[in-house]
Design a protein around this nucleic acid. Structure first.
Lengths: 140, 140
DNA sequence: CAAAAACTTGACTATTTTGGTCGGGTATAT
DNA sequence: ATATACCCGACCAAAATAGTCAAGTTTTTG
C-alpha cells in the first residue's frame, strides 16, 4: 500500500509554498527547482489543485499560485481529495447488484476494511498543512 | 492509496479459515467456493503464507491448510508482511547517497510520511485475525 | 493399487495504473 | 514586444496488478 507520487508531490509543493509565500504568488518554476520535481508534472498537479479550489493562480510575469485557504486551515485530506486520492483500501463497493464478492451479504472482512479506511482518513482529516512545518528550519 | 487484492484476499481467506477450521485442515477449494476467489490465485497467495510460517499445509485427499498461530495470536501485520505489503507510503529511503529527492537534507514533508506509516502500521499491529470475526454470524 | 483430491511451483500474460513528457496555447507585467 | 508563467489535452513507456497455465508431487481411501 503506498501513496502515489502525485499526492506526495502535491503535499510537498504546497508545503514549499507555505514556507515561501510572503504574500506574493509562488511560481512552479521555483518550487520545481527547490523540491526537485519536474515542472511539467507540477503543472499537471496544480491544474487539479486549482480546479478543486486549493489554490488560485496569477498569470503573467510575476505570477504563480497562492492559497485559497491559509495553510493553518488547509486539511491534508482536502489535498488528497483534489487528486482523487481518498483512501479506499478495497473494492467492496455499494454497487446496486452485488456487494463485495458477488454474495448477497457483506464479505466477512467488510467491517474491518471500513475501520481501516476510517483510521487512515481521520489521520488526514486531523492534519493541517501548517502542522507539517513545525520545527522546520527554512533552508534557502 | 489502496491495498492490493493479494493482501485483501489473504485476510479474507484466513478469516474464512478461522471460521471453518474445527481442528481439520481447510482446503483452498472450499475457501475458493465460499469466498468467490479464484482457486489458482489462492494457491499463489497461500504459497507465500506458508513460506512465511502463517499456515501449515496438509497434503493428500483430506488435506488443506491449518494455522501455525491461532487466530487469537495472529496479527494482521504478520499477514501483510508475508505478502510484502508493509505500508511504505513514500519513496524517501535511507539510501546511502541521497535522501528523498536528491537533496542532502530530508525533504520538508519527510516526518509527516513517517508519522503516517506509523499510524497505519500500528492499526495492523494491534488487530488480530480473531478480532475480525466478532459479532459475525456464521453463514453456511 | 489406482484414482482422486489437494498442495507445489515457476512461468507467463493481459490489463491497468503510474509517472511522467510534448506541444501548442493564453494572459500579463515591464 | 517579449519574456515569463499559467493552461490544457493528448500521448506514451514502464511498472505493477491480477490473474492463468502447465506440469508436477503427495497422500488418502476404496
Amino acid at each position: 500500500m503506498k501513496l502515489n507520487t502525485k499526492s506526495r508531490y502535491a503535499v510537498m509543493a504546497l508545503a514549499d509554498m507555505a514556507i515561501f509565500s510572503d504574500k506574493k504568488a509562488v511560481s512552479l518554476r521555483d518550487i520545481s527547482l527547490r523540491q526537485g520535481i519536474s515542472l511539467l508534472y507540477l503543472e499537471q498537479i496544480f491544474l487539479r489543485l486549482k480546479k478543486n479550489k486549493i489554490v488560485n493562480s496569477v498569470r503573467g510575469i510575476n505570477g504563480g499560485y497562492t492559497f485559497v485557504k491559509s495553510p493553518k486551515e488547509l486539511k491534508i485530506s482536502d489535498i488528497l481529495l483534489a487528486l482523487d486520492q481518498k483512501v479506499k483500501t478495497i473494492g467492496c463497493k455499494k454497487d446496486s447488484k452485488k456487494s463485495c464478492n458477488g454474495k448477497s451479504t457483506k464479505c466477512i472482512t467488510h467491517n474491518f476494511w471500513d475501520e481501516l479506511d476510517l483510521h487512515i482518513n481521520s489521520f488526514f482529516e486531523n492534519k493541517r498543512l501548517s502542522d507539517l512545518l513545525k520545527n522546520k528550519e527554512v533552508r534557502l
